[in-house]
């Protein structure tokens, strides 16, 4: 009888202490309740484990940065939105893909192909005006003002013709040496802007040789511009 009573007392004391743990941690309990919890946890391992867990929770809540919480909550809402609509859910996407891949692998690949082809086509469409710009001679570009970047007006037989601008007006001998070093000869120039047109080798010279010549010219300290004439406008 006595032992049952003691057991019941212990049980109710344990329950009371267990319930009060959060307020024991936040130190808002009055002295009586505080003492009850303090005495109980000395002997109760269950309450000590719980106290430890609640303390960690308390610390975590106290330390959490508010902005971080806000961003996490926003993300949780977005996640919920993704998960509640299976047609766009990422996890569902995966399941559906794997299942369908067994039966229709080519169909899925084809859909992907169509998507990316459409994307490439739209990019090409966007770039078209700029590409056409270099093929069509624009009337407004025939005026007095032109730059080296303007569209070309002479496009025939210019595969091996390079336009060069020299720095600090070197004398003709120096220019001759530079041009000869890339097997070239001046066919035109200098223009009032100081542009020379130089043919590299002869008509049989291939593109690779011309490109090599351009790279060597660009490496030269006296050359500030070297570019294939094809695609460039005439600079007067």
């Amino acid at each position: 009888m006595l032992s049952t009573q003691i057991k019941l007392t212990n049980q109710s004391e344990h329950q009371k202490a267990w319930d009060l743990l959060p307020w024991y941690i936040n130190r808002s309990l009055g002295p009586v309740e505080h003492a009850i919890v303090k005495n109980h946890i000395r002997t109760c391992i269950t309450c000590r484990i719980e106290l430890n867990l609640q303390e960690r929770l308390f610390k975590k809540i106290q330390q959490t940065d508010l902005l971080q919480q806000v961003s996490h909550a926003s993300f949780a809402q977005l996640k919920k939105r993704i998960e509640t609509h299976p047609e766009v859910s990422i996890s569902n996407k995966c399941t559906v893909s794997n299942k369908d891949l067994i039966f229709f692998p080519f169909q899925l690949q084809f859909l992907g192909f169509v998507k990316y082809t459409a994307l490439a086509a739209s990019l090409l469409l966007l770039a078209a005006p700029f590409m056409l710009n270099s093929w069509v001679i624009q009337p407004e570009m025939e005026g007095a003002y032109r730059t080296l970047a303007n569209s070309s007006e002479s496009t025939d037989n210019t595969n091996n013709i390079v336009r060069i601008v020299f720095a600090d007006q070197p004398d003709s001998e120096q220019i001759e040496v530079i041009v000869n070093s890339v097997s070239g000869h001046i066919i035109k120039g200098p223009s009032p802007n100081g542009v020379y047109e130089v043919q590299i080798g002869n008509h049989q010279t291939d593109t690779q040789q011309v490109n090599d010549a351009i790279f060597r010219l660009r490496d030269h300290a006296s050359v500030i511009f070297a570019e294939l004439a094809q695609g460039l406008s005439v600079s007067e």
């Binding site: 959060p22 307020w23 936040n26 808002s28 809540i61």
Partner: peptide, 14 residues
Amino acid sequence: VVEMTYFQGLHYSE
């Protein structure tokens, strides 16, 4: 309740 206990530090009676 969690917020008022662990962040605001209130007693359960409050």
